[in-house]
């Protein structure tokens, strides 16, 4: 990061706009949707780090998201641990479980990792549903908030997203990042060059789970409640949708994807299409994907370049 580049200036300008916009009079309505967007963007960044750079496809990031949310909710509510600390521990729990589950399945090639990640949230859903210790079907209520002021919560989510972005940029430029990309491009060749591929994949998975966990914990404290449905389809599919739509394997792709999807989702909340709203949403997403299969980031680059 040598000289100040125009793109950096543009980024800073956009960030300032994002930070100030909901504070303007009459803009408070944007606070909650934008906070959610930032959290989902963080989750998408985490997913993209794993798939876009290490080539590992996960269909179950809702698990890492939800597990950390649960851990953080329980720690802060029942054990009185301060919320920021609980969030970090929660994310670490996610990361730990990821290591445990990932260790055996990462040695394999092909579809097995995909299948494991698909089954994980389903198991977690059924288990939390059945166990009263985890709040059972209705989940855990009264999760203490990080801060009470919703503008501060919003700024926090913006910071979270930015921090994950910086963290993934840092990872990608490190030695680990280079190794990750080599694994993605050609695992055999990477191995031949002396890259310890299972270790690289494991680290990528743990970092990704940690970031997803932070997002999940943030989300649990935002809503004040977390229930088994967090493991369901929506949170599992969204990061994939957002990253691919925005441009997988690019740093900003997931963020752009998250903002586009959430804007689409929110702007479709209009009376005229009440019952068909979700259908229109799905169809529009499908159309965008079929028109720009390489992601919106590619289009943006072409326009600027």
């Amino acid at each position: 990061m040598s000289a100040v580049r125009p793109s950096h200036l543009a980024g800073i300008a956009l960030l300032v706009v994002l930070a100030v916009l909901p504070a303007l009079p009459g803009m408070r309505a944007l606070l909650f949707p934008l906070t959610l967007t930032n959290i989902m963007a963080t989750l998408a960044i985490a997913w993209n780090l794993l798939f876009g750079y290490a080539g590992l496809l996960s269909l179950g990031h809702s698990f890492f998201f939800g597990a950390a949310g649960y851990a953080s909710a329980i720690l802060s509510k029942s054990y009185g641990i301060p919320v920021p600390v609980a969030m970090v521990i929660g994310a670490a729990v996610s990361s730990g479980i990821a290591a445990l589950v990932g260790l055996p399945s990462l040695k394999l090639r092909g579809h097995y990792f995909v299948l494991v990640t698909l089954v994980l949230p389903a198991v977690a859903y059924q288990l939390t549903n059945a166990l009263d210790v985890l709040g059972g079907h209705d989940g855990i209520f009264g999760v203490p908030p990080l801060v009470r002021d919703s503008y501060a919560v919003y700024l926090g989510s913006l910071f979270l997203m930015l921090a994950s972005l910086v963290a993934s940029a840092f990872v990608i430029r490190s030695r680990l990042g280079v190794e990750m990309i080599s694994v993605r491009e050609d695992e055999e060749a990477a191995k031949a060059l002396g890259v310890d591929t299972p270790r690289v994949k494991l680290y990528a998975l743990m970092i990704s789970a940690f970031l997803s966990g932070l997002a999940g914990a943030y989300w649990a404290h935002l809503n004040g409640v977390i229930s088994p449905s967090v493991y369901e389809l929506e949170k599992a599919s969204m990061p994939l949708l957002m990253s691919v739509l925005g441009g997988k394997g690019t740093l900003l792709g997931p963020v752009i994807g998250a903002y586009v999807i959430q804007t689409l989702f929110e702007s479709l909340k209009i009376e005229a299409i009440a019952t068909a709203r979700l259908f229109v949403f799905a169809a529009a997403t499908f159309a965008i994907y079929r028109i720009f299969p390489q992601g919106l980031m590619g289009v943006l680059r072409r326009v600027i370049g």
């Binding site: 949708l241 259908f279 169809a283």
Partner: peptide, 24 residues
């Protein structure tokens, strides 16, 4: 792989929400 999952998944979502729109 991702193209397959994305496409088939989005098809599933569309079909599901079309059913919701028709049958609640």
């Amino acid at each position: 792989k991702v193209e397959m999952i994305m496409t088939t998944f989005l098809v599933a979502l569309m079909a599901q929400y079309l059913i919701v729109a028709i049958f609640t």
